[in-house]
């Protein structure tokens, strides 16, 4: 890499890639209405199909990757992206855990194809949806379904300043306390995954009188069994708990293990 952006005439080249996903995480960048033009001034947007028809060939200094690997073509494409990229950051639950489409991993892919398409033989797909780090080395991961705007801007700033992004790995409970939310689990008996879910969203669900549904995936030092016991005492059946754990981060190892420990034996 050449010198820093203030000394070098060349601004860092940013590329934004999309694999199997809903576009929501890359939209988060376009949703930074107040910062978008400043970001575009600090970096050279070399590849971002959703936003521009201009495309510059690599290499790229920073690649943001949205989406999971669900096709052989995408498994090849991510290797090409990695080879052309200095710093690769995966953004969102699809890229970091396989996303909601990873629910196929628990079922039978031919059955899935038949459920949606009259001619399943036209559909080319892998049996699994897997996160990017299962395929290539990843430099940093941003969680969330969708990612947080604040964390995305922090990650871009950190990249420009050549420091590590300040993205906490504490649980949603701490954000809830800071926001001054009343604990929905303790006070209202509302099932909540906050104690085992990584912070970052700003504890939005409890602020709306709803239990956390785990869209930022498992917190680092997750200890699921006590929470699962408490939720069962609240009256949730093992299949209900299993569904709660198996949504957008179903294949994140800690959530998968917790769901399997219930022994509900459901496909999803």
């Amino acid at each position: 890499m050449s010198g820093n952006s203030e000394m070098s005439p060349r601004r860092p080249r940013l590329a934004v890639w999309k694999l199997a996903s809903c576009d929501g995480c890359q939209l988060t960048l376009l949703d930074c209405e107040d910062e978008l033009l400043a970001v575009a001034g600090a970096v050279d947007i070399a590849y971002f199909r959703e936003a521009t028809s201009a495309a510059v060939d690599g290499p790229y200094d920073l690649s943001l990757v949205e989406g999971s690997i669900t096709t052989a073509a995408d498994a090849r494409r991510i290797r090409e992206v990695r080879a052309a990229t200095t710093t690769l950051v995966t953004i969102g639950a699809c890229a970091t855990a396989g996303g909601v489409q990873a629910l196929r991993n628990l079922g039978d892919i031919d059955d899935f194809k038949k459920a949606v398409y009259a001619r399943p033989e036209f559909i080319s797909t892998l049996a699994t949806s897997t996160p990017i780090r299962d395929h290539v080395p990843v430099d940093f991961e941003l969680r969330g379904c969708p990612i947080s705007k604040r964390q995305l801007l922090e990650t871009l700033s950190a990249f420009l300043a050549r420091r590590t992004p300040n993205v906490p790995t504490e649980s949603v409970c701490l954000e809830c306390k800071r926001r001054g939310n009343v604990c929905v689990l303790v006070a209202h008996g509302t099932p909540c995954l906050g104690p085992v879910t990584q912070a970052g969203c700003g504890a939005i669900c409890p602020a709306f009188h709803r239990g956390c549904y785990g869209c930022f995936g498992p917190q680092d030092t997750v200890n699921a069994p006590p929470l699962l016991t408490e939720l069962q005492q609240l009256g949730l059946s093992p299949p209900q708990l299993e569904r709660l754990l198996r949504t957008f981060n179903a294949e994140a190892p800690a959530f998968r293990a917790a769901a399997e420990s219930l022994g509900a034996g459901g496909e999803k």
């Binding site: 694999l19 199997a20 996903s21 809903c22 576009d23 929501g24 995480c25 939209l27 669900t70 096709t71 995408d74 996303g99 909601v100 489409q101 629910l103 196929r104 079922g107 059955d111 899935f112 194809k113 459920a115 949606v116 398409y117 559909i123 797909t125 949806s129 379904c145 969708p146 549904y213 209900q240 569904r243 949504t247 957008f248 459901g266 496909e267 999803k268």
Partner: peptide
Amino acid sequence: PPRFFEALLRGRSFEEAPDLTARICG
């Protein structure tokens, strides 16, 4: 790439459809 929403919705509770299907489009 296809994501098979109609298939993965099977067996889910009626209450989950709004949040699960939201992920079809950000």
